[in-house]
């Protein structure tokens, strides 16, 4: 049974405000405590789950390739201005976010970093703020993502990857 107490939030370090505090629900702990969870979520089970993640990485990679291919025409529409650019910017944000997560999950860290950089840059913009130089930077990101995926470069991409990361930093500082 859940117990309830009333407490002044002042002693929680918050501004004075009354709160109802329900005692922690320990029903899951009662059901699965006492070492049951240790046995169920054993190192072997975790190892099996990690293997599943690895086995899924190729599917995620292929999906990233599709997303990266879709990015290119979106970037093309950005330069046209107006409603097309507005819609396109939203789609680029959604796509770069998807690439960031999936590339990271499948071990393509450099692609994930580039997608994050593209995402942050686009989130700060409105379509009206697209200039030839911002368009050039966005195009550079989209093309780099596509190229790295085509070359199937996993991880941070060694020396070439480091050069790209330096370029991302340079562009961030310049912005």
């Amino acid at each position: 049974m859940t117990s309830v107490r009333i407490q002044q939030m002042a002693d929680l370090g918050d501004p004075a405000d009354e709160a109802v505090i329900l005692a922690a629900d320990r029903s899951l702990l009662r059901k699965f405590g006492g070492g049951l969870l240790d046995r169920a979520l054993s190192p072997e089970a975790i190892k099996k789950a990690e293997a599943f993640i690895s086995s899924a990485s190729n599917v995620l990679y292929l999906d990233c390739m599709d997303e990266a291919a879709r990015l290119q025409p979106m970037v093309g529409l950005l330069g046209k201005g107006g409603l097309d650019a507005e819609r396109s910017l939203k789609r680029i944000i959604a796509t770069s976010f998807a690439i960031k997560s999936k590339a990271g999950q499948s071990g393509y860290d450099l692609v994930s970093t580039l997608a994050k950089s593209l995402l942050l840059r686009c989130e700060e913009l409105s379509a009206a703020q697209i200039t030839p130089s911002t368009l050039k930077i966005i195009t550079w990101h989209a093309q780099s993502i596509k190229r790295i995926l085509e070359l199937n470069i996993k991880g941070l991409g060694g020396e070439a990857g480091r050069a790209l990361l330096v370029e991302i930093d340079r562009l961030r500082v310049a912005a």
């Binding site: 009354e18 709160a19 505090i21 329900l22 922690a24 702990l29 699965f32 789950a49 990271g104 999950q105």
Partner: peptide, 27 residues
Amino acid sequence: KPFSAEQLVKRIRTVIEEPRDFVMSRN
């Protein structure tokens, strides 16, 4: 994301093994 199975298990175990009081206030 990206997440590992170990990280997910850790969060699940925390939820089950270290339940917290539940606060209902105005804010």
